[in-house]
């Protein structure tokens, strides 16, 4: 069993006796204990987070991470605080991803797909490629809830999208 320094409440593992795996943080190789999350593995490697770390419990959306595995053409997306490292994993965090966001007054708009069209015309160009669902780190059926909006079924859309943690942030005139 490994020795652990617990002086700061969070378990922090030391190298002795741990089975290590290699991960590539933005292309640079680090040896980290297997079974760590990406977040703790990067801290183990010596990174200190300013961006890309939030609740550390899978609900705030700060730590979206894109990764690939050796010999696999897929691009994977997960939360760094929830995803366990794998040997040979290449990863980069996406602490900010610019998103289009409309301004609205809830009292003044109806529950009509037309209103959504005015705010987000791009949704109506959907060809059902399902890439949105595949990149969602919360496993939300994004394509299905977008479809529900287009069909005017806002209740269904709300239910399907309820676990959304808004891991992308708007870029409107908002920040100081």
């Amino acid at each position: 069993m490994s020795t652990t320094d617990t002086t700061k409440g969070e378990s922090k593992e030391t190298t002795s006796g741990k089975e290590l795996v290699s991960i590539f943080v933005m292309g640079k190789k680090y040896e980290v204990p297997k079974n760590l999350t990406i977040m703790k593995a990067m801290e183990y490697a010596g990174y200190k987070y300013i961006r890309g770390c939030g609740c550390r419990g899978g609900i705030c959306g700060a730590c979206g991470t894109v990764y690939r595995k050796p010999g696999d053409y897929h691009i994977y997306v997960g939360l760094a605080c929830q995803t366990v490292v794998e040997d040979g994993m290449y990863l980069t965090q996406l602490p900010f991803f610019p998103a289009n966001r409309a301004t609205y007054n809830l009292e003044a708009i109806g529950s009509d797909p037309e209103e959504v069209y005015k705010k987000y015309p791009e949704l109506f160009r959907c060809v059902a490629c399902n890439a949105c669902t595949k990149v969602c780190p919360m496993d939300i059926s994004v394509m299905d809830y977008i479809s529900a909006i287009k069909q005017g079924d806002f209740e269904k859309a709300t239910e399907l999208s309820f676990d959304c943690i808004q891991c992308i942030f708007p870029f409107e005139n908002y920040g100081g």
Partner: peptide, 23 residues
Amino acid sequence: LLPDYTLPHVKERQLTSCYVGTL
């Protein structure tokens, strides 16, 4: 501001003599 979860094996190598700021 932020908790420090840097591990001892990393700290041992962080030998910059004067720390200013977060990083």
